[in-house]
């Protein structure tokens, strides 16, 4: 197990009150495995990643409980220096918006080389050579010239590639990709997903892919973690989850998607809105929107019901849901 998150609780202390953003999140990633974290805005999928990386803004964010372990080593209580070291060489992260993740006043090459010089003690010349190799690896054409250019001179797809190159510079064992293709056009998105999958396979990296896109998930994920209102509502391998979702929220999400291969009638919708994290509903947080909610759903938080190996669903009626 490379990366383990257990019972993670994060709250945001705001002027309007305490937002319970994560309420007991746990998942794990092994070498060579792709875990997709699926959720809508406010589900806590990015906050979990930021907590893993130790880049939450405190205040307002506070980790109140839980554990994040990399190769068995607890990160939440580690010293800042130790976390920095792990952030550089153990777990790296790429973001949706490459333009704001890259520093506009330094060349792309400099930003890749900086870490190599600081962490690996490379000379300028060696670092430059390695940066060119990395840009080549992520298939940036004319890497030798491009290494001297600034982020604004790159197109959106190339910036994303440059950020991936930067994240790979120190050979991380786990890569967390937070909506890496959401801002990209569909043809470029496909290129970037192919690239990530290839790099991951070759290096046997653990990949945590955070996304809202069910299609992307279906194409690359080994396992899927579905989040809602700061909780994991379902975990399953990709094939099982798409064949028979085990949580009413997952099932409803799938039915609300328009299809590329057929022009359907009206889409099924999920009624209402995701809850405010300042006032999460009692019991199961999904119950006000759930088509099969009963009294028990408002009264008691559902346990994680096991549904076969590596599968679970946090629903009082999980077995019936998965059975159709």
């Amino acid at each position: 197990m490379l990366l383990e998150v257990e019972d993670l609780h994060v709250e945001f202390r705001t002027r309007d009150g305490v937002a319970r953003v994560l309420n007991g999140v746990g998942y794990h990633v092994s070498a060579g495995e792709t875990v997709a974290v699926l959720g809508e805005s406010g589900s806590g999928k990015s906050v979990t990643a930021q907590a893993i990386m130790g880049i939450l803004d405190t205040p307002p964010a506070f980790v109140t409980r839980g554990s994040v372990r990399f190769r068995g080593e607890e990160l939440l209580t580690a010293s800042p220096e130790r976390r920095r070291a792990i952030r550089a060489e153990g777990v790296a992260m790429i973001f949706q918006d490459a333009l704001s993740a890259l520093n506009p006043v330094f060349t792309v090459g400099f930003q890749i080389e900086e870490q190599l010089r600081l962490r690996r003690g490379m000379s300028r010349a060696d670092a430059r050579a390695r940066a060119i190799e990395l840009l080549d690896l992520v298939r940036i054409p004319a890497a030798r010239q491009r290494v001297r250019e600034y982020p604004h001179q790159f197109s959106g797809g190339m910036r994303q590639r440059a950020m991936i190159a930067m994240a790979l510079a120190l050979d991380p064992e786990v890569l967390i990709a937070d909506e890496p293709t959401t801002a990209l056009d569909v043809t470029v998105q496909a290129q970037i997903m192919d690239l990530l999958a290839e790099v991951q396979r070759e290096r046997r990296m653990g990949l945590v892919l955070i996304t809202h896109d069910l299609g992307v998930v279906a194409e690359v994920a080994d396992r899927i973690v579905v989040m809602y209102a700061g909780r994991i509502v379902e975990q399953a391998d990709a094939v099982s989850l798409f064949r028979a979702p085990g949580h009413p929220y997952t099932a409803a999400l799938m039915r609300s998607l328009p299809r590329l291969d057929a022009k359907g009638a009206a889409l099924e919708t999920i009624r209402g809105l995701p809850p405010s994290l300042l006032r999460i509903p009692s019991g199961c947080p999904f119950h006000p929107r759930c088509p099969r909610a009963e009294d028990v759903c408002a009264a008691r938080v559902p346990p994680d019901v096991p549904l076969g190996p590596g599968r679970s669903s946090a629903c009082h009626f999980a077995e019936e849901v998965v059975g159709g």
Partner: peptide
């Protein structure tokens, strides 16, 4: 190419 690039929500077609 556009149609082909759209990810399909069915892991069995991977």
């Amino acid at each position: 190419a556009l149609l082909s690039a759209v990810p399909v929500a069915d892991p069995t077609l991977r």
